[in-house]
Amino acid sequence: MLEIKCPYCGKRSQNEFSYGGDATIKRPQLGEEISTEDWDNFVYYRDNPRGKHSELWHHVSGCRQWFKVSRDTATHEIFDTCKMNEDFNV
């Protein structure tokens, strides 16, 4: 079970969180003209890297904040976590 540092609450066990996918995905603007291909890339297509991955987690059984985690998908090492409006330090 991973130990994740919520930027608001501190270190907590994984079972307090839920996973929210790739943090680098940007939702297209509302009302934006967008090709089906670009829309499908946003809705369906995700990279599945081995190694460093920037992802979203939600502290559902805690402060209910979404935040960013930089994690190694192979070793589960967590390099850094930060709030949504911040950038990773490492």
């Binding site: 939600h58 209910r64 904040q65 979404w66 409006n85």
Partner: peptide, 16 residues
């Protein structure tokens, strides 16, 4: 529960 998480996601991540 899912709807609440969904709303929080859009408020915190997509349209802060």
């Amino acid at each position: 529960a899912n709807v609440l998480s969904h709303l929080e996601y859009y408020l915190q991540v997509v349209w802060p």
